[in-house]
Amino acid sequence: MTPQRLRTWVWIHKWSSLVCTAFMLLLCLTGLPLIFSHEIHHLLGGEIETPNIAHQGPNASMDDLLGAAQSLYPKLVPQYMFRDEDEPLQWTVRLGATPTDQTQLQNVVLDARTAQVLGQPPANEGFLYVMFKLHVDLFAGLPGMLFLGLMGLLLVLAIISGIVLYAPFMRKLAFGEIRHTRGEKLKRLDIHNFIGIVTLSWALVVGLTGVINTWSELLVKYWQFDQMTQMVAPYKHLPPPTQFASLQQSLQVAERTEPAMQLGFIAFPGTPYTSEHHYGIFMRGDTPLTKRLFKPVLVDAQTAQLTDSRDLPWYLVALLVSQPLHFGDYGGMALKWIWAVLDVLTIVVLWTGLKLWWKKRHQYVPDVSTRIALSEAY
Rank of each mutant, 00 (worst) to 15 (best):
S322R: 03
E87Y: 10
M333S: 09
R5D: 11
Q106P: 01
G285F: 01
L25Q: 05
I53A: 12
L66G: 04
P241D: 14
V321R: 05
P58N: 00
R5E: 13
A245C: 07
V130S: 05
R371P: 02
I163V: 14
L155R: 03
V344T: 02
G176F: 01
P234A: 07
L150G: 14
P99S: 08
H38E: 08
W339V: 03
Q363P: 00
A158N: 08
L32Q: 06
V348I: 13
V299S: 14
T242F: 06
M261I: 05
L95K: 05
T92W: 06
R113N: 07
L148I: 12
D226R: 12
Q70M: 13
T50Q: 12
E39R: 01
V349M: 01
C20A: 15
L319G: 00
H38A: 06
L208P: 03
D64V: 06
S61I: 00
Y80Q: 00
A115Y: 13
A112M: 02
E87F: 09
W337I: 07
A318Y: 01
L247I: 10
M170W: 11
S246P: 08
M283L: 09
L72Y: 04
V156E: 03
L118V: 05
R179K: 06
V206C: 10
Q262V: 14
T352K: 00
A115W: 11
F132D: 03
H237D: 14
P259D: 12
L374R: 11
P259Q: 10
I372W: 15
A260D: 15
L251K: 05
L335W: 06
L118Q: 05
W223T: 04
V365N: 09
L25M: 12
Y364C: 01
N52V: 09
Y315M: 05
A301L: 12
Q4K: 15
T30L: 01
A158H: 10
L306Q: 12
E85F: 04
W215L: 15
L320Y: 11
W215D: 05
T274K: 10
L319D: 01
H278V: 06
T98Q: 08
Y73G: 00
Q252D: 15
G176D: 03
K355V: 10
Q120K: 11
L65Y: 02
H42I: 08
T181Y: 07
T114I: 01
L154K: 00
Q302F: 13
V368E: 14
